[in-house]
Amino acid sequence: MMEVYLDNNATTMVDPKVFEEMKPFFCDIYGNPNSLHRFGAGTHPKMVEALNFLYEGINAADEDDIIITANATESINTVIKGVWIDKILNGDKKHIITTEVEHPAVTAACRFLQSQGVAVTYLGVNAEGTIDAQQVKDCIKDETALVSVMWANNETGKIFPIKEIGQICRDAGVLFHTDATQAIGKIPVDVQDCNVDYLSFSAHKFHGPKGIGGLYVRKSCALTPLLHGGEQMGGLRAGTVDVASMVGMGWAMKLATSTMALAYEKNHISKLRDKLESAILELPDTIVIGGTENRTPNTTLISIRGVEGESMLWDLNQKGIGASTGSACASEDLEANPVMNAFGSDSELAHTGVRFSLSRFTTEEQIDYAIEVIKNAVTRLRGISSSYAYAPASHASGL
């Protein structure tokens, strides 16, 4: 039995080259970077190098800040709650704009702000699974403090019009945050070109270690820190930095955002994804959620009518294949997939989405094996379904 990991939007393996760069900081160069002695100072060269890799990876300017955090969730909460403190509690802004398909970290933070009296507008997605920049423009008002729109969706891979939204926010004098967790390492990400004020990311999504992330903050857009304590990160985020993980994140960024790596994603990984997708779509009553245009190269979310997503994952797991029904951060939630709901899918289809997400370590041999297993699983599960036999073939045309 072959093992095939197709859940890379949940997490990725650490690139062996990244792991090699991290090794010395566990047992050899282990000093606290804030200590004055040679053991602490010995960590500084590689930390500076890693930080430079992060700046280069997203094209941050020298005068901007990149704060090292524990993960993208912390980065997101730092932005949303920081803006709440600075612009809403201590100012006259009372409104935030986001979308219905954001990562749970954004949605939950916005729900918290709503409980504190903040008005939040949730933009719905269009038939292509994204939003129009004009939707943002139409919803901005004098009280708007922040717009938060993801760069790429974690379930469908759909890419949002970040450059256009950034320009709209800049022209309106509204702060703009984007969660780029699912974009970095898959498509080019440029904070200068897109007028981004805040950008959040997590290392384990682009073959770095778990437990570390970053927050880009444009100069003049400083925030009240989420964590207070020591003076680490220039007082912007208290807590001793995990040097090994910071070095790993820097090197993972360097490898993932190189011209060669991004070209490999675009030209090779997308072909493997398309091969898998096309084979599944040969089955009746299957559809790609959001369509096949304007996506990250590695992701597809497919609805297979008559097959519960959880049941499909069980069958795949028995054959050594890892996939997902959506966000890993909500994997224990048995409610219908919120992204499927946002598309207006019916109650049956809302439970049938299966996400396959590849990485640069996925091989064609693995895809061929996955295709065979998936087709056999669909045949078995539809064969024992109490409702699929009555579903009309016309369902294959769409949601």
Rank of each mutant, 00 (worst) to 15 (best):
D92P: 01
D132S: 12
N71M: 07
K94I: 00
Q134S: 07
G173W: 00
R170N: 15
Q134L: 08
I85F: 01
V118R: 02
S115V: 03
G117E: 07
D171G: 14
K93S: 00
W84Y: 11
T130D: 11
L89M: 12
I162A: 10
D171Y: 10
V101N: 05
S75Q: 11
A119D: 09
C139Q: 09
Q134P: 01
V174M: 09
I80T: 08
D132T: 02
H95Y: 00
V136D: 13
R111W: 09
I168S: 09
E74C: 10
A72S: 15
I76W: 04
D132L: 10
V174P: 12
T130Q: 12
K93E: 01
V83S: 05
K163E: 15
S75A: 15
A172N: 12
S148D: 08
T156D: 13
Q134K: 10
K94H: 04
D171W: 12
G91M: 00
Q134R: 09
S148L: 07
T121H: 02
N90T: 09
S75L: 12
C169R: 05
A72G: 14
C169Y: 05
T130R: 15
G124S: 06
P161W: 04
V136N: 12
V106E: 08
G82H: 06
N154H: 13
V79I: 09
E100C: 09
A172Q: 11
F176P: 06
I85Q: 11
F160R: 09
V149C: 07
Q167V: 06
C110E: 11
I80L: 13
L146N: 04
I97D: 04
K94T: 04
